[in-house]
Structure formats: structure tokens, C-alpha cells
Design a protein around this nucleic acid. Structure first.
Lengths: 104, 104
DNA sequence: TAGACATATGAACAAGTATTGATATGTTTG
DNA sequence: CAAACATATCAATACTTGTTCATATGTCTA
């Protein structure tokens, strides 16, 4: 039941770009870190032991794909996941990986 | 509620590798094509206008990550998604992309 | 305004990877 | 066994991309 619809070409491209962005350990770590609470760039860099520059570069990509969103608070900018879609998906995928069950 | 758990380092690696594999349009097209029904390598190549070699290379990667599974049927090998986890996730993500709703 | 602090950007390099073309392995049929 | 068909592998190339270092932009305080 519930016929599956093939994504159109532009949809496939967007989907692939989203997955590609998620397909990097550094970015994933940043995302999961910001999943718990909004984090400043400096906090991300320090906590994850990454250079400030690298974090900023990755945040730019994540921002561009609307995966995260930043709010300026005086000098610092706090980043959080863009919406519930993104966070839910991340949590779901993490569960899938943890389970690693073959149900066939 | 429902506290979110940060994935451990090996889990993050596996997760990133999975996402990275999904982050390529060609592989996504192959996956969605095999989502509808088990497909032979030749069928995939012809239908998606890809070289047989390229399809085989990609299938090897997808096989390695247990995203697809192949069954030999005489000369041909029919590939299908490895399990319901994978197909559900693909369908879910496709929906997310199609919706593109900001719910905040 | 100057200086300190926080983040962003630009250029350059190294490493990874998608794609191609040629060839090898494996399977069936004559 | 040989020829034909289907898939897999190997080597080489072009391209993408993660990371670093240096520098620029933006923000607050003395």
C-alpha cells in the first residue's frame, strides 16, 4: 500500500545536498552539540576542540542549508537547530544507528 | 522532555558515513529506483542513464554500508533496499524536503 | 575612538571521491 | 568447452571539499 513517489530531479538534488552536509563527523558533532542547547561559536570550538575558523566555516554551510539558525546576543552568536524537523531527524537517525538491527 | 543523548564517537562516525553515502544524487537516484522494486544492475544503468561500471561502483558502496542487498537470479543480480529502516528513512526525508515547512 | 573580544571570510593546500574506460570474474546456453 | 551475457574490479583522472592560517568585520567597554 501507500505507493512510494520518486522525488523529482530538483528534490533529489536538495535531498542529496542535505545528506552531504550531514555526512561529515565534524558537522554532526556541531549539530548534536547545538541540539541540547543554543551554543556560541566559541563554546562549540572549545567544547569540541576545533578551531574557531573551522567551526565558523561549517556553521556557514549549515546555515546555508537552513539546518541551523543563529541569534546574536551581544558579542556572541548562539546557534541552534533550525526547526523541529531537523532535530527530530537527527535523533531518529541516531537511534537507527544505535539499534543496528537487521529485521529480515 | 525525553532527554537527547549525544552519540558516542564511533556512533557519530557510522552516522556520518551513512549520511555521506546518501549525500550523492546518483546514489540517491539508485536507492529510490530500487525502493519501488528490486532492480538489476543493467536495469538501473539503463533507466537512470548511467554506465554499468558506475552503477556497480555505487552499489558496492551501498552494499558495504548495508543500505542495499542483492539477490542473484540466474545471470542478473537484483538489488533492493536492505531493510525497512532504510526505506522508511528515505521516504521520510523525501517528505521533509517536499514540505519545506518552517514550523517555528 | 582605541583596544579587546567574538565571529566571519578569503586564499591555499591536502585528502577524498565520483566518474570513466578497459579488463576480469562469474553464469548460462549452444 | 566456447561464446555471450551480466556484473565486478582495477587504474587513472578530474573534481569536490575539509582544514589551516591570516585577515577582515562586527560588537562592546574604558
Amino acid at each position: 500500500m501507500s505507493k512510494v513517489v520518486l522525488p523529482s530531479q530538483p528534490e533529489t538534488t536538495i535531498l542529496a545536498e542535505t545528506f552531504r552536509l550531514l555526512g561529515d563527523s565534524t558537522r554532526l558533532r556541531i549539530l548534536f552539540f547545538c541540539l541540547e542547547a543554543p551554543r556560541s561559536v566559541g563554546d562549540i570550538a572549545a567544547s569540541l576542540d576545533l578551531s574557531q575558523s573551522l567551526v565558523s566555516h561549517h556553521l556557514r554551510l549549515l546555515r546555508g542549508a537552513r539546518l541551523v539558525r543563529g541569534n546574536r546576543q551581544a558579542k556572541q552568536i548562539f546557534y541552534e537547530l533550525a526547526d523541529k524537523h531537523v532535530s527530530d531527524m537527527l535523533v531518529d537517525m541516531a537511534h537507527h544507528v544505535c539499534e543496528e538491527s537487521g529485521d529480515d
